[in-house]
Amino acid sequence: MFDFSGKTALITGAASGIGKATAEYFFGCGANVVLADINEGAARVVAEALDPSGERVSAFRYDAGASVSAAEVVAHAVERHSGIDHLVSCAGIYDQQITAEMTDEAWRRTIAINLDGVFFLVRSAIPVLRDNGAIVTLASVAAHVGGTGGHAHYGASKGGVLALTRGLAKDLAPRIRVNCVSPGLIETPMTGGLIGRMGEDILKQILLRRYGKPSEIASVIAFLCSDAASFVTGETIIVSGGAYMG
């Protein structure tokens, strides 16, 4: 575990899956945590379970595809904790549509939430990020391989996150470090459908012969935000159990 005492982490997509595990991990390391999610009710349940007093944890309704929502959640973090030290963008969507049948709406929604949302959030947070802070974005192995069939839009959105991360690292250096994590197949509500459809076929591609746990991504995110990674910026760590070695 790392020591984030006195630090503030703003984590999006924090009501479930990797975002929830990351919020739990950072709280356990002593951080103040703002849980941002489109499902405010679920985020509040997580917040209350972590910190019934509400002193160190709060929940906020956040729509990743709306720039105004990014500004609002950043303002909330500043109001509660005077600034932000660690920014983690876990919010995202993952649906299936064959490219030939994909609607304009499906394409734009995926890009808006998975890619535009990262840009909106970081842009809003830059003025209030404290010196020596850290940003971690979430891409996916799909960004490196193009995704599985029917997920070209998802792969494209996450490929954009990889490029955006590197650009941000250049723009924000040396004051802020920016890195990315590319998870493989992690057992979350978002991936349940894929695991159900492909099951053993996917499992055979994973060298460790199991699916990842959200906590195993959370610990890598925490590492990248910690002083242990103080000379790491502009990098992507792939966490896939050996399914992809880029």
Rank of each mutant, 00 (worst) to 15 (best):
S124R: 05
E72S: 15
G133D: 09
V68N: 13
A169R: 13
G167E: 13
A228L: 12
S5H: 10
T165D: 07
L164S: 09
F4H: 01
A228G: 08
V239R: 08
E200V: 13
V181N: 05
V141F: 14
H81P: 07
P127A: 08
G199D: 04
L185A: 05
L203T: 02
E55L: 11
N179M: 03
V145P: 08
R80F: 05
K213C: 06
I93W: 01
V141I: 12
Y244P: 09
E55M: 07
V122Y: 03
N39Y: 05
E40I: 04
R123C: 02
A75I: 09
Q97S: 15
Y94C: 09
A9G: 04
D227E: 15
S124P: 04
C225H: 05
C29H: 01
V45Q: 14
V136M: 05
I221H: 00
V141Q: 04
P189V: 11
A163D: 07
T236R: 01
A142D: 14
A228M: 11
D116S: 12
G41V: 12
E101M: 12
C180Q: 01
V57P: 04
S215P: 10
I186A: 00
Y25W: 10
A14F: 00
I176T: 08
A70K: 01
G184S: 03
T110Q: 09
M1A: 14
V46A: 04
Q97F: 11
V68C: 11
G13L: 07
I195A: 07
D131G: 12
G19H: 02
G92R: 04
M1E: 12
T137I: 08
D171H: 13
R80V: 06
A23W: 02
S140T: 03
P52F: 03
R61C: 08
G192E: 15
K213R: 15
E40V: 07
G17T: 00
H151E: 14
F26V: 10
Y244S: 11
G150M: 06
P127K: 02
G160F: 09
K20A: 11
R80D: 01
F60D: 01
M102Y: 09
A112W: 11
E55K: 14
S157I: 06
A64Y: 01
P127V: 11
A21G: 03
T22D: 00
H76Q: 08
G192Y: 01
M1L: 15
Y25C: 12
G160E: 10
G234S: 09
E55G: 07
R197P: 02
E187M: 07
G155N: 07
A15W: 01
A156D: 10
N32M: 06
A125V: 05
G199K: 10
S219I: 14
V45N: 13
M198K: 14
L172I: 13
V34R: 00
A143W: 14
V122I: 09
L129K: 00
I195L: 09
R197E: 13
